[in-house]
Design a protein around this nucleic acid. Structure first.
Length: 494
RNA sequence: GGGCCGCUAGCUCAGCAGGCAGAGCACCGCCCUUUUAAGGCGGGUGUCGUUGGUUCGAAUCCAACGCGGCUCACCA
């Protein structure tokens, strides 16, 4: 590795570091236990007037990063920032005496601990008059500008740590992300679900149709896949007698990257025995309105130009009714050639060799999906598109499945689970034909999953929700990369 | 993978009818003990993404490449 030449700015700071050391201070060895967070200080004392503060003589300590610095010669004002806020500090030569000297080598970005008395300045800002301070970390690299912050998108993703320091809204997004997952878990646990962990390294990448990442186990001399979905393992747990299970975790799909796709993404999948997809729709409404209400304090959420309303019930339309509304003639819904013709007339490109179901799916994605702004359940899909879902009893060509769309995006996918082992095997076999035709995304036959079904799986409903996409909606972010701390990027070239 | 756009100082950005590389903030020096985008005086710190080409002369024009963004394609 070639050392990058250090810029003058870094050299200057290294020089300051050695000056500090020559004063007998080791700026990385300090230990400091703050008495309060900045948030706490404002909560406890934010209402006190100038006079009250003078009378009460409140002494406290905080630690944080210097983000603004104003040097007056014999006095210095600075703002320090901790995890939840910032507060002004005031350092005076006549108070600090000898300890004032190293302050001349303080930089924006340094982390210090200060102890002092709370007061209000002439302009009424709550401020700590510092009586003692400790260097906790000397920053060698300068932070981005105080006014414009860090805007360069690439730099924000590559150096998320800097992004988090200087762009408060970014930190907020990731705090909300954690809250969303917390409320989700809370809701499911209150409903009697057991959280489980199933393998992320699979010998067969099943449960979805996607190209997997490959990896290799040395000791077993065996190829493995990073999971594309936990579905087949969670259903094995239904066979095993768990009646309500869920898993929150990463899935990995070896596909294109976009504002809606990251190769690794977070899903929750949950399964309930003895329920069907109708029950699950009601349940989904409760789940989403619970999270939204708790997070936003309202069921209405601004997303870009939209106001998304999570108040149940959500509209439920069958896939075929949605197509009918778009003017697709009845005959075309039963005839592949007619459907193809109709799609072509509308300027929709359809991959060669597509079956009727696939053509209808393409038309749906093109014409219907983008218009599903408010939470909407699309229900009853063709069996061919849904190899793991249970057939409708009144129409075996359709399955009891729904997808939830919000802001024109697929948010959740759910169905009454197929628990007929022979039908399941049959559908896997039919898929295998596609695999033999060269479709790499069709999973191999999972014999063990069939075996599990042969032991008997209770009727059940299962659902997967894309957490990243839900976070996008609830935090008003337009790119999935803005809700993933470290999105995948090509390495920088030097 | 295709199309379009971007890459200039630590950061945010000008400069691109080819002619000595700029501003604000940050930084360095001096002054300043209630400032807050502190202020005053002085200082430009750069591989203009990379490599080639055109030209007397390229940040600027052309080509290839790299990284990123948007978009299309892909996407159970």
């Amino acid at each position: 590795m070639q050392e990058t030449p250090l810029s003058d700015l870094i050299q200057q700071r290294i020089k300051k570091l050695s000056i500090i050391r020559s004063l007998g201070i080791e700026p990385y060895n300090g230990i400091f236990e703050p008495s309060d967070s900045t948030e706490n200080i404002f909560k406890k004392f934010g209402e006190l007037s100038k006079e009250e503060l003078e009378n009460e003589n409140i002494t406290l300590s905080v630690a944080g990063r210097i983000i603004l610095l104003r040097d007056f010669g014999k006095a210095v004002f600075a703002h320090i920032q901790d995890s939840k806020g910032r507060i002004q500090i005031y350092l005076r030569k006549d108070i600090l005496g000898e300890k004032f000297t190293p302050i001349k080598n303080l930089d924006i970005g340094d982390i210090i601990g200060v102890k002092g008395r709370l007061f209000r300045t002439k302009t009424n800002e709550l401020t700590i008059e510092v009586h003692d301070f400790v260097f906790l970390s000397k920053a060698l690299r300068p932070l981005p500008e105080k006014w414009h912050g860090l805007k360069d998108i690439e730099a924000r993703y590559r150096q998320r740590y800097v992004d988090l320091i200087v762009n408060p809204s970014v930190k907020e997004t990731f705090i909300k992300r954690q809250l969303i997952i917390k409320y989700l878990r809370e809701f499911l646990e209150n409903e009697g679900f057991l959280e489980v962990e199933t393998p992320m390294m699979h010998t067969i990448a099943g449960g979805a149709r996607a190209k997997p990442f490959k990896t290799y186990h040395e000791a077993l001399d065996m190829e493995l896949y990073l999971r594309i979905a936990p579905e087949l393992y969670l259903k094995r747990l239904l066979v095993g007698g768990f009646e309500r299970v869920f898993e929150i975790g990463k899935n990995f799909r070896n596909e294109g990257i976009s504002t809606k796709h990251n190769p690794e993404f977070t899903m929750v999948e949950f399964y309930v025995a003895y329920k069907d997809y109708n029950w699950l729709m009601d349940f989904t409404e409760k789940l989403l309105s619970y999270i939204t209400e708790k997070l936003c304090g309202s069921l209405q959420v601004k997303y870009g130009d939209y106001l998304i309303d999570f108040t149940p019930p959500y509209q439920r339309i069958t896939m075929f009714d949605a197509l009918r509304k778009k003017g697709l003639p009845e005959e075309a819904m039963k005839d592949c050639d007619l459907a193809l013709q109709w799609a072509k007339a509308k300027g929709i490109e359809i991959p060669k060799g597509s079956s009727l179901s696939k053509v209808l799916d393409e038309i749906f994605k093109e014409l219907v999906e983008p218009e599903l702004i408010q939470p909407t359940f699309i229900i009853d899909y063709p069996v061919e598109l849904s190899p793991l879902a249970k057939r409708k009893s009144d129409n075996p060509e359709l399955v009891e499945r729904f997808e939830l769309f919000i802001a024109g995006r697929e948010m959740a996918n759910a169905f009454s689970e197929l628990n007929d082992p022979l039908d399941q095997k049959d559908r896997f076999l039919r898929q295998l034909e596609e695999r033999l035709k060269g479709d790499e995304e069709v999973p191999e036959m999972d014999e063990d999953f069939i075996k599990a079904l042969e032991f008997g799986m209770p009727p059940a409903a299962g659902e997967g929700i894309g957490i990243d996409r839900l976070v996008m909606i609830l935090t008003n972010n337009q790119s999935i990369r803005d809700v993933i701390l470290f999105p995948l990027l090509r390495p920088e070239t030097k």
